[in-house]
Design a protein around this nucleic acid. Structure first.
Lengths: 353, 353
DNA sequence: ACACCTTGCTTAAACGTTTAAACAAAGTAC
DNA sequence: GTACTTTGTTTAAACGTTTAAGCAAGGTGT
């Protein structure tokens, strides 16, 4: 009696999930038939299919993803590694990936490296452990050693890099043309009448920052401006370091009349200092950032910046992954997609007009 | 000859993952023994354990998470639903959850509702489909219907809400004391000498915004200030609507001398309009936001705001989930954790001193 | 010398699904 | 009426792991 009662309680609480087998029992057919019916197999009669679907609904059946993933050797999960959580660029990229992938039945597992190499390795382990079908990543600033990324490759799991990539890793890549972006910026500043254009750049060993630096140097040459070493600084590109580096520039005998900063955050730091010192922007010093973070439009003066087409990057990265899934055996030709960036001109660099 | 070549290539590329069985074969023991050895079962000899670990390393063995999850009926995945990607608050909360959960062997699946009820329902389906062990969510502004959240509950999956919760759903909740926060803000403004304090609030049907409104009303009363209907507005709290609502306030015969906005974003919109109209902040109108988004410190004047202790909220939510996992059968007493918020006073409301 | 415990393994079933192969029944062709 | 195809299903194995139950060999106590 007591036993029976506790059993009843169990029944009420636990509400065991129904399986394909339960459906099969109700209809007196085999589980295999149910599975096929649910997948609309042509060899199953319409009558059975209808019945199965009905019973499935009645029993509140939901397929067990783990079981099917195990059996099929495919988890329908895509791992994402982004260097930062709080950047608008990355969250926007990820959101657009999510949209594309969800439509095709894939789900996303997000991880963040916080620009740390160690965290990045942990993330990769986590994702491999979770049996993701592919990894879409943007590398941390710190990352130089590529062993962990090669680990992904040797496991035969598709790897797609975006924004922060590496040429040495032979994998698909989607990003904007950093080299050309620097050209666009320098040209814009020259057009505004600037003659001494400084560049607060990122670490040279990160490809994108290196490209921006090269673009800056070459663009100066094209416009017949001399490259002055004191005007080219390497920075961590944090807000704080933006402050430091602009102060360094302001100490120069011969100050620049424009500063191109390789990140909006560092540009913001620079702007804060300029305002504190009552240096007029853009009249005394023009300022250009990179990334088109929303705050660039919010501060005063608003900051001219480069729009990196985050939605497009996310979409393309997701699509590249999907292509890999379609034809996994065929050795894909490498996909390197480089988008043109767009300069969004705002108050911080609008001297003329 | 050709065939052999292609087979060799295949061998090199595909590198079949090794399983527990492979280890067992190498050592001539049963797969069960290997499994136990890897889990440090006391019934396995140290000699065998060492051998197993060595072979596992040699074969580059990695456990198949899907298989063990299926067998154990536990995925070690936690689903997260956040209303927005780009808010510092939410990304910071999630990051702190991630930290706590990763340490205990759980991984996170992130989803975003973008404040849409429909998307939220999709997210819930996605997470249930992925067989998460629990869901930690913050509700979209739109969400009124609770059917989908009840669906989670009836499945017996732990559900923990943070920030945006609902009293009617009988689930764990972690958030800050919105009612009290309004008190703190009103007191601060009164201390600064303000007499006509307006409130641009959120939608009344969302609990947190309702609490802020109630707090505002009660605080006014406490400080013997009259509640004037024209000073209490309901808003979507976007930047754009912040602009609209401040304009509405500026049109009043008798303008407010302070505005408390229930979101930093709307506060920013308001600030933009005030600056455009050359109304001095805080001298003519003091401004207070909510959320302590990073940009509140970046704009000029910087915006006074409420710090919501995102790290703490994330940590507590994660810990609450872990407690559920520890004792799943025992009917837990409901965990409602309400943290005190902290006012970060900045330029936009610093009239005295 | 007997019962009994411990140690260290093995066996076998189970988790829920998918799928290749088999098969029965009915239909078609000649 | 025999051979072959089609239709609609079943059977059984498989995915990789975990775990309850079993069992053999050796040790301990009396």
């Amino acid at each position: 009696m007591l036993k029976r009662l506790s059993k009843d309680i169990k029944k009420i609480n636990i509400k065991k999930k129904s399986t394909i087998k339960d459906i099969a029992n109700v209809l007196n057919i085999s589980p295999a038939a149910v599975s096929k019916a649910l997948h609309d197999d042509p060899r199953i009669s319409d009558k059975t299919k209808k019945a199965v679907r009905q019973v499935a609904k009645n029993l509140n059946y939901h397929p067990n993803h783990l079981a099917s993933a195990l059996r099929k050797g495919k988890s329908n999960l895509v791992g994402i590694i982004a260097p930062r959580t709080n950047s608008h660029f990355f969250s926007s990229v990820v959101q657009s990936m999510e949209e594309v992938l969800n439509k095709k039945g894939y789900n996303i597992i997000m991880t963040h490296s916080n620009e740390s190499y160690k965290k990045e390795c942990d993330n990769i382990d986590t994702l491999l452990f979770t049996q993701v079908d592919g990894i879409i990543a943007s590398m941390a600033n710190e990352t130089i050693n590529l062993d962990y990324y090669n680990k992904i490759k040797t496991k035969g799991i598709p790897l797609i890099l975006f924004d922060r990539g590496e040429n040495d890793l032979n994998v698909d890549y989607i990003g904007i043309d950093d080299y050309k972006s620097s050209h666009i910026i320098v040209k814009h500043l020259v057009d505004q009448g600037c003659k001494r254009i400084a560049h607060i750049g990122g670490y040279k060993h990160t490809r994108i920052f290196n490209n921006r630096i090269r673009g800056y140097i070459d663009a100066l040459r094209e416009h017949h401006l001399p490259l002055e070493e004191e005007l080219l600084l390497e920075s961590s590109l944090s807000i704080e370091d933006g402050r430091n580096k602009i102060e360094q520039l302001l100490k120069l005998k011969h100050r620049p009349d424009a500063v191109y900063v390789a990140s909006d955050y560092a540009a913001l730091g620079a702007l804060q200092v300029l305002k504190e010192k009552n240096i007029r922007v853009p009249e005394d010093i023009a300022l250009v950032g990179f990334g088109n973070e929303p705050f660039t439009a919010m501060v005063t003066p608003s900051i001219t910046s480069i729009n990196q087409h985050s939605e497009e990057i996310g979409k393309l990265a997701a699509q590249t992954f999907l292509e890999h899934m379609k034809s996994p055996t065929i050795k894909q030709s490498l996909n390197k997609k480089i988008l043109d960036a767009e300069l969004v001109i705002r108050e911080s660099s609008k001297i003329k007009g």
